[in-house]
Write a protein that binds this DNA or RNA. Structure first.
Length: 707
DNA sequence: ATTAGGG
DNA sequence: CCCTAAT
């Protein structure tokens, strides 16, 4: 790739490479992809972190075995479902990696961020969360880990690959995890009920066979399943996917593998600092929050109507800059594996007050290290795993949680039919990434209610009660920090389990994005201004519309095209966070060739006002033509001058009456000499040649070519 | 926000 | 048309 200017802007190499002058569409594409990836990374990191913890636990534990399925499997799937299982018993480790991990994660999240409005303002991607978690937990974790875990492990036979028997397990492990060391292979036992989910899908799913490294990662969920379900607009509601765990939305795409891998890499790079993610083109709109989601549907319309006008502003300024740290690329890679493993391990998340947690906590410690590492490029995962809970609670009784999967909020994606599967995948990834990238936090739902007070203990909250356990759910919410502010802030975009979940998403959709209007529909009155050619004026508008349609259909309109609910190409989801979105809206405006009438109006205006006063010209002759900016007029004049100088044979497009071209040359020459700019309107009349002959203009066949 | 130019 | 720089 050639680097262009953009490099200067700080794009990292990745980004930088723009396609030089390839069609913009292409360029854009590149960008968007990159962006996506980056964003993905974030998400992945989160996942990874989670996974990492899990891994830590399970590390070597056979991945496949471990998978035991339980949850991991579920996780592997897409996302989302989670089930919590708990045992009254306090068997610490039985848990599967997976669960633990999840639990931990949740715990972490909760701690770190309050669910409450929290910190939405700024969230830092996963890292922040992780860090926090790790921090808090560690102490406890360490202790617990060393103690509990070991014991547990031994008892349970559960082996987490990473952990060492030593009390140290935590920290070392984490670090090690990154490296991939696992000294002890842990095997998970399924003793716990929950553990056995019998789903081993993960194992299956995951390509990698290393016991140690499980393919699964959080991301996996998405990918793994492959079934991506993109709720169609209509579907959404019905699905209620959200609300229930069962209904979870599935965003998995099968092929994700590719993406997946990519993710991992990227994600890792990511680190904490995550530049505003830019995802996608304007076409792609992702809505993280339900509200936004709504929008998505609308997008189509939106785009339809406005192919040009509406959107324009947005994309105009797309700027690209992405900065990511690449370092760690490899590291991440490794991590990923770990994560996967971890995921397996996690099955158990012990949310419960302590015992379970403890084990996780160990992990946590490791995490810390990892977190640090992450920042460095080390493994980030661990943090998530860290059992936060431990901190809160004592080690009384342990509650076991088995989270099979996390639910992800519904994502609506719009993709042109013409979109490739690959693009779809990317889109889905983007959407997911956006969610994750924004910073994910875990929400705890108890009987459908969010448990906001992170400081309360499980017992205080009632989570430890078995009765409640059934109604306990974890949700993945948009990061606490900034991004989600308005949109996400409250509602968890993702609802894991609980009943509640779906509502928002579902409901939201209704409010689609409002876009606007129909851009083209508006006729171009411009001409009218000057010449009132009613006919013409009418004419144009019509044509214009037609064009629009055409255009859309042709190329860019993809967005426009109604997306089958399932389409992929771009995720329609638009995260609330403006950051993400705005960045990438740009799309090239549909091309709308100037009609002869427009040319005539332009010439007329230039003759009167001179060049260099495009704004005035716009006002005078194209005021009603929203799609013609003064820049456009200036450009058109430029091309007209050029056209007038070349032989007719060399001209392309709709022929412009020679008469007009002559006027163009005359006006150009005239104003060139007179430095029109200075003078103001001075000599409208003076125009040289121009005798404005209205007739002529009209006469000139009006090209119907619309636009 | 405009203007000017290069691409 | 887009993108930038300079106003």
């Amino acid at each position: 790739m050639v680097f262009k200017k953009r490099l200067d802007y700080g794009f990292n190499t990745f980004n930088v490479p723009d396609v030089p002058r390839a069609p913009r569409s292409i360029r854009r594409r590149c960008r968007s992809k990159r962006v996506v990836e980056d964003s993905q990374i974030c998400a992945f990191e989160l996942l990874a972190s989670l996974a990492g913890k899990l891994l830590q636990e399970s590390e070597s534990s056979a991945s496949s075995n471990a998978s035991e399925g339980h949850d991991r499997v579920s996780i592997g799937k897409d996302v989302v479902k989670q089930e919590i299982q708990y045992d009254d018993d306090e068997k610490p480790l039985k848990v599967e990696c997976f669960e633990q991990g999840s639990c931990d994660t949740s715990a972490v999240a909760s701690e770190s961020t309050n669910e409450n409005s929290d910190d939405l303002k700024e969230f830092k991607p996963a890292d922040s969360v992780l860090d926090r978690a790790s921090i808090k937990t560690r102490p406890a974790c360490l202790e617990q880990m060393s103690g509990d875990l070991k014991s547990v492990i031994r008892k349970g036979n559960v082996a987490y690959g990473n952990f060492h028997d030593d009390g140290d397990l935590c920290s070392p492990d984490l670090g090690e995890l990154c490296d991939g060391k696992s000294e002890n292979g842990f095997k998970l036992e399924r003793d716990a009920k929950g553990l056995e989910t019998g789903k081993s899908s993960i194992a299956n799913t995951c390509p990698s066979k290393d016991p140690v490294a499980l393919p699964m990662t959080y991301s996996a969920p998405v990918n793994s399943k492959r079934d991506v379900k993109l709720p169609s607009r209509g579907d959404r509601i019905p699905n209620a996917s959200f609300s229930r765990h069962r209904n979870d939305i599935k965003l998995g795409s099968r092929d994700d593998d590719e993406n997946f891998s990519r993710f991992n890499r990227l994600s890792y790079r990511f680190k904490a600092s995550r530049p505003p993610t830019r995802i996608g083109d304007r076409r792609i709109r992702k809505l993280l929050t339900s509200k936004y989601w709504k929008v998505a549907p609308k997008l189509k319309d939106f785009e339809h109507s406005k192919a040009d006008g509406g959107i324009r502003p947005l994309y105009r300024k797309r700027k690209s800059y992405y900065n990511y740290d690449r370092c760690q690329y490899e590291t991440h890679y490794k991590r990923r594996k770990f994560f996967d493993r971890s995921s397996i391990v996690n099955s158990d998340g012990g949310i419960s007050s302590e015992s379970v947690c403890n084990s996780p906590e160990k992990v946590a410690d490791g995490d810390k290290g990892s977190s640090a590492a992450m920042s460095h490029g080390a493994c980030g995962i661990p943090p998530l795993l860290t059992g936060n809970k431990a901190s809160h609670q004592s080690k009384d009784s342990h509650v076991k949680f088995s989270i099979k999967s996390f639910r992800i909020p519904e994502l609506y994606i719009e993709v042109p039919e013409s979109a490739t599967v690959g693009s779809l995948k990317r889109t889905v990834m983007e959407a997911v990434t956006a969610l994750l990238g924004g910073g994910i936090r875990v929400g705890v739902l108890l009987q459908g209610k969010k448990v906001r007070d992170d400081s309360r203990t499980l017992s205080q909250t009632g989570i430890s009660c078995e009765e409640n356990l059934d109604s306990l759910g974890f949700t993945l919410e948009p990061g606490p920090a900034k991004a989600p502010p308005p949109v996400c802030s409250e509602e968890p975009p993702l609802l894991m389990s609980c009943e509640k979940g779906p509502q928002q998403l579902t409901s939201l959709p209704a409010t689609p994005v409002a876009d606007t209007a129909i851009p083209d529909a508006t006729p171009d009155p411009l001409l009218l201004t000057d010449t009132a050619h009613p006919v013409d004026s009418n004419h144009e508008p019509v044509s214009s519309q037609t064009d629009v349609l055409t255009d859309q259909s042709l190329s860019e309109s993809r967005a426009i095209v109604p997306v089958p609910a399932m389409n992929v190409e771009a995720l329609a989801v638009i995260p609330a966070s403006p950051k993400v979105r705005k960045t990438e809206l740009a799309q090239r405006r549909t091309r709308r060739p100037f009609s002869v009438l427009e040319v005539e109006a332009l010439v007329q205006a230039v003759e009167e006002l001179g060049t260099g006063r495009w704004r005035d010209i716009k006002l005078r002759a194209f005021e009603n033509a929203d799609h013609r900016t003064y820049v456009d007029l200036k450009d058109k004049w430029k091309t007209l001058v050029h056209t007038a100088k070349i032989s007719p044979q060399q001209r392309r497009g709709e022929p412009v009456p020679q008469e007009l071209l002559d006027r163009v040359l005359a006006a150009h020459a005239y104003w060139s000499q007179h430095q029109a700019k200075q003078q103001g309107k001075q000599q409208p009349g003076t125009l040289m040649i121009t005798d404005t002959e209205p007739d002529r203009n009209r006469l000139a066949t009006v090209p119907t070519v619309p636009m």
